[in-house]
Amino acid sequence: MTLETLTFAATASSPRVRSDAEAGLLELAGESYPENSFEFFQPILAWVEDFLARDDRPLGVELRLTYLNTSSIKCMMDLLDAMEEAHLSGRAVSVTWFYDPENDRALDLAEEFREDLSLPFRIVPMPSEG
């Protein structure tokens, strides 16, 4: 059974999501304050766990999130925790967090995530669009 590909279009309160099992890549970009974060993130978390459980290939997660409400932060933490566990077992995983260099808060948020993790976590400045 092949892994389902995730493709969510961005909305005013939820990010664009794209997954590529072939390339071992997951991308999230945009705002994240949906009405029910757990519902929104459930398929994404399931995809990550599924990918990590079946293959041996590396997984790269790229995040370009402009805002996360606290529930989204919680869900994102759960996702990163799963990746951390895989990392500790020797699996190749990595996170790249792009942030708007003019926004200190965005950098703070990224660093707060990185604090709790030992997996490769890059924080990259990226000029915001428009």
Partner: peptide, 15 residues
């Protein structure tokens, strides 16, 4: 063990 049934691993032991 763990969530995925992976091995304990060097990294985990190291940490």
């Amino acid at each position: 063990g763990g969530r995925f049934g992976f091995g304990f691993g060097r990294r985990r032991l190291g940490r």
